[in-house]
Simulated scan of single mutants.
Amino acid sequence: MQKFIFAAAILVSIAESQILRQGKCPLMITAQQNFSVEKFSGLWYEQVYTRRFSGLNIRCNVEHFTQAGPKNFSLNSFFHSEKSESEFHRENITYHIRGIGEVKQSANNSGILRVTIPKMNVTSDVWILETDYKNFAVLWNCVDMQGANYMENVEIITREKYAKNKVLLNALNVLPKKKIAKTNLSYAAQTNCPSYEKQLAKFNLTGDALADD
């Protein structure tokens, strides 16, 4: 997996998706002001992500944020990979990645998160570009590379497993406001998903509607 990561809904995309662009990371990108870890805590479903090139065909990605302090949190990601099924002849393979993080100190308590995945020994910053806490959140990460290039990643997560079109449109409209391109985005699969109830219970997390009827 790549060492250049997108950390937050992150945890799957941490090593799986980023787009190489010319230039340096934009300096004028702003994150959500007065960000609240408490309001952001809970279950989120991945809906849109920067295209992945690993071939793992990741789907059914969910993220659970748990507040661990005024500016600290833990983050658990659960996802499924169809390629693993076909290659290793195993069904219902569930992957779990755990991260820990904190809100970086800033004048306006901006939603810039420093997320670490201990098992991978990687740390990266992710911007919560905008969230209403109840419906959607738009996340962005950027890493300058050697030379005149940078890697960036976008992810949209929602509270509902099957997000309404209006919610997705509102989230996607955040990108042009921040002068971030919508290119190389894909819609996530949240259908025919395995149940993650046992995994959530193991880590004392709560969730609902985690499996299809």
Rank of each mutant, 00 (worst) to 15 (best):
E197G: 02
S13F: 15
F65W: 10
L169R: 05
Q47L: 02
Y133G: 08
R59Q: 05
N57A: 14
C25M: 12
K179E: 15
I180H: 07
N184C: 04
Y196L: 07
E130G: 05
Q146V: 07
C193Q: 03
I157L: 05
Q67P: 00
E155F: 09
E38D: 11
A209D: 11
G55P: 07
E102I: 09
R52V: 04
N57P: 00
Q190W: 02
G55W: 08
S124N: 15
L139W: 09
G101C: 08
Q67G: 02
A137G: 11
Q67N: 02
K83S: 15
G111A: 06
R114F: 08
S81D: 13
S77D: 13
E87P: 05
L11G: 11
L185I: 02
V167G: 06
W44C: 01
D208S: 14
F73R: 02
N204C: 01
Y95T: 10
R59L: 08
K177R: 15
I10A: 15
M151W: 11
Y49F: 15
K179M: 13
E87V: 12
K71M: 03
R159W: 01
N204I: 07
Q33K: 13
I97S: 13
S195V: 01
A107F: 11
A8E: 13
F88D: 12
G147Q: 01
Y133R: 05
F203W: 10
T123E: 14
G42N: 07
L200M: 12
V167D: 09
A209C: 02
L200K: 06
R51Y: 04
M151N: 12
R21K: 07
V12N: 15
G147V: 04
S195E: 04
Y187P: 07
K39G: 03
I14E: 14
N61M: 04
E38V: 00
T123L: 05
I156Y: 01
A137S: 14
A137F: 08
V174Q: 06
K24H: 06
K202F: 13
H64A: 07
L172A: 08
F73M: 04
E91S: 04
N204F: 12
V174E: 13
Y45Q: 05
K134A: 10
L168C: 00
I157Q: 03
H89G: 11
P194F: 05
H64C: 09
K164R: 10
E85Q: 11
A211I: 01
L172R: 04
P176R: 15
K104E: 15
I100S: 06
I58S: 14
K164I: 01
K161W: 01
N34G: 03
N72H: 05
K104W: 03
I14N: 15
Q18C: 12
K177C: 04
G99W: 11
Q22M: 07
E102S: 08
K24C: 03
F53D: 14
L200R: 04
N135Q: 08
N135I: 00
S84A: 11
G42Q: 06
K202M: 15
K178L: 10
Q33D: 12
E63H: 13
R90I: 14
E160F: 01
I180T: 07
L172Q: 04
L168I: 12
L185Y: 06
D144V: 05
L168N: 03
Q105L: 11
Y150V: 03
Q22P: 08
G69D: 02
F4M: 08
